[in-house]
Nucleic acid binder design. Structure first.
Length: 623
RNA sequence: GCGCCCGUAGCUCAGCUGGAUAGAGCAUGGGAUUUCUAAUCCCAGGGUCGUGGGUUCGAGUCCCACCGGGCGUACCA
């Protein structure tokens, strides 16, 4: 969507850039070749077609087909009425004489099969790129040429209720995207759009007035508010099976048959500015915020802003008035809605018949406010895919309001399921609390580390490793999944020490650290040494090629907001490192080979650590 | 009813705007260690990509129909 255009232009002949993106360079060279053919009337390429054609330059599926393959000749030939292989050959003739090509890539030779153009990176260029990356604090990854301002809206819990497993995906994916886009060089603004104004506060207010435990509140306000929320929700919902299991709730429900309506009334009083409820809200908010803050600290997630629904509340009437005045919205059945797809399709409701505002109203106000104050090029909403239609409607309404050319993107994701294929619940059928989930992950990680670990770890170290591995496993399991599909949550799978898991990756980092500490390697010296990395063995070359693809992968992650592309590549990289490490001596290698391989180890460790860091996952020196 | 998403190895999942012989991990079977951390590496078996049509040089990917599952569909967020 966004990347690809903003990458480095082709380099002039001669020196290598210090941060080389082979794919971006090759694409630029293909662009020159195709433009040349178009200029000579051999093929017709509209400027709009070019990016799509260049997407067809990608890493080869099989190493025997070289490092990159171009597949556009087949499609182009059809349109031009040419034989595909002939056209491919013509592209190749143009490509290999593009300035700079010969410095980076081998001549492609003849087209293969129906017209594949296979390109191999020159060994010297690859070695030089890795050498440069070793000395580079950005690990060879160039920043985008045209940085954008990107707002990322994620996590967004309802603050008066305990955070649960449902919040983990938005939080973890949003945080990873924020870190990745920042590293890419964009100006990222993260905003936690808290649910701090809804019915859940009505529940707490009602609970406070009817069944508070002052002593408990004084001792632990968070716990007491959590208790009130859980209790009142059952009383208000009044589901027989729930009440049967909870005598206290049942007694309250019997004493207050109108509890459900009273809760809504408390909410309405809060919204209407009732002094008592407003005062209580102001008293409870810091407590609620402290509670979620503790979890964010543990998850190592932070936000630039936490502008909740309450913040936008004063703007809502104006939003409705503006939409009414512009004719986009109108009254219907007592409510006010924006009719986007004609009369038959449900409108986007922005005011209820009772005068209350809705989720959509707040979202529209939020867009306006963000555009006015932050002037973003893009806003990402990392929210459950079930809200896809809601965002479609909100975005369309915003566009019709003429809110500028900001790119509004719903980054949706699937549901976390249990073993039974149903949404993840405890055995008792409750949603799983986020804190309990993290605790269990850490506890299980501690057991795994104790069994497999190398010993000689003090208690403090053991704790830190367990926390890093446990939290990392949970995050990684989520991020390594294609975000659009549901996935089955399994502690056993995510804490496995092999396969595509955080622990495997963290272990690979620890092995690099091990080799460096064992050899008493001065890593600064490795990085600043003028010596060039040498790529002789196949394993060295494969590792090097994986390393320099870091930039390409981050570009792809941004294009589709898909962190799982980063985990897949990290896993691939760790695999290449393991093969390399397994088959070639490093410390015991002679002379130049030793320093070259140490440089590869050092870079691999840093890239793995940085890559995991971009996912919000920590590493340890030993495990 | 309508709309969106999904169906890939025994299990959990990848598969990048259609590209080469559909890939991993787990599980199963075999092999490698006087260790630079074996929490590793190497090899093998395992598939009519839900079914049936279509589009084309080429379909897991695009189109149509059907089967099966999930979600959403006017006053919750």
């Amino acid at each position: 969507m966004t990347s690809g255009r903003s990458e480095q232009p082709p380099r002039a002949v001669g020196e290598l850039p210090s941060r080389v993106n082979f794919r971006a360079s090759l694409r630029a060279m293909f662009a020159a070749a195709l433009e040349g053919l178009a200029a000579d009337g051999v093929i017709a390429v509209a400027p709009d077609d070019l990016p799509g054609l260049l997407q067809q330059v990608r890493e080869s599926a099989d190493p025997k087909h070289g490092d990159y393959s171009g597949t556009m000749a087949m499609g182009l030939a059809k349109r031009a009425g040419r034989k595909p292989r002939e056209l491919a050959a013509e592209i190749i003739r143009r490509l290999e004489v593009v300035p700079g090509y010969a410095g980076l890539f081998e001549p492609p030779g003849d087209p293969v099969g129906p017209g594949f153009i296979n390109v191999r990176v020159k060994d010297e260029a690859l070695a030089a790129a890795v050498t440069a990356a070793v000395a580079d604090d950005r690990l060879g990854v160039a920043a985008v040429a045209e940085p954008q301002t990107v707002v990322i809206d994620f996590s967004s819990p309802n603050v008066a209720k305990p955070m649960h497993v449902g919040h983990i995906r938005s939080t973890v994916i949003g945080d990873a995207l924020a870190r990745i886009l920042r590293f890419r060089g964009h100006q990222v603004i993260t905003d936690n759009h808290l649910g701090d104004w809804g019915t859940q506060f009505g529940m707490i207010l009602w609970g406070w007035k009817h069944c508070r435990d002052e002593a408990a509140y004084a001792a632990n306000p968070t716990a007491e508010l959590g208790r009130l929320y859980r209790l009142v929700r059952k009383v208000a919902d009044a589901k027989p099976e729930e009440l049967a299991a909870d005598p206290e709730a049942a007694a309250l429900a019997a004493a207050h048959p109108e509890a459900g309506r009273e809760v809504l009334a408390e909410t309405a009083r809060l919204h209407a500015g009732d002094a008592e409820n407003r005062g209580l809200w102001e008293q409870f908010m810091p407590v609620c915020l402290a509670e979620i803050e503790r979890l964010y600290r543990r998850l190592d997630v932070s936000f630039d802003h936490q502008l909740g629904e309450s913040f936008f509340q004063p703007m809502l009437a104006g939003v409705v008035d503006d939409l009414l005045a512009s004719g986009l919205a109108r009254e219907s059945r007592g409510a006010v809605g924006v009719f986007l797809d004609g009369e038959e399709e449900p409108p986007l409701l922005i005011r209820k018949a009772d005068g209350a505002f809705l989720y959509a109203t707040t979202d529209l106000a939020t867009i306006q406010w963000r555009l006015e104050h932050w002037r973003p090029d893009r806003i990402l909403y990392v929210v459950d895919h079930r809200q896809g239609r809601h965002f479609e409607q909100v975005f369309e309404t915003a566009r019709r309001q003429g809110l500028g050319d900001v790119e509004l993107v719903h980054v949706g994701f699937g549901t976390v399921l249990g073993d039974d294929g149903r949404p993840f619940k405890t055995r008792a059928g409750d949603t799983v609390g986020l804190e309990a989930l993290l605790d269990e992950g850490v506890e299980r990680a501690a057991r795994v580390v104790a069994e497999a670990g190398r010993g000689e770890m003090d208690e403090q170290m053991r704790q830190r490793v367990a926390e890093t591995v446990g939290i990392g496993a949970i995050k990684y399991a989520d991020l390594s999944q294609n975000r659009t599909t549901d996935y089955v949550f399994s502690f056993d799978k995510m804490l496995q020490l092999t396969g595509n898991t955080a622990a495997y990756m963290q272990y690979a980092v620890a092995r690099v650290e091990g080799i460096c500490s064992k050899g008493r390697v001065d890593r600064e010296a490795v990085r600043t040494a003028a010596g060039c990395v040498r790529l002789e063995a196949a394993q060295e070359r494969a590792l090097a090629l994986a390393l320099v693809r870091f930039a390409e992968v981050l570009e792809d992650v941004e294009a589709d907001n898909r962190p799982n592309l980063l985990t897949a590549w990290l896993y691939d990289l760790a695999g290449h490192y393991s093969s390399f490490y397994d088959s070639l001596p490093v410390l015991k290698a002679e002379g130049d080979a030793c320093s070259s391989r140490l440089a590869l180890c050092d870079l691999t460790g840093r890239v793995l650590r940085h890559g995991l860091g971009l996912l919000g996952i920590g590493t340890v020196e030993r495990m």
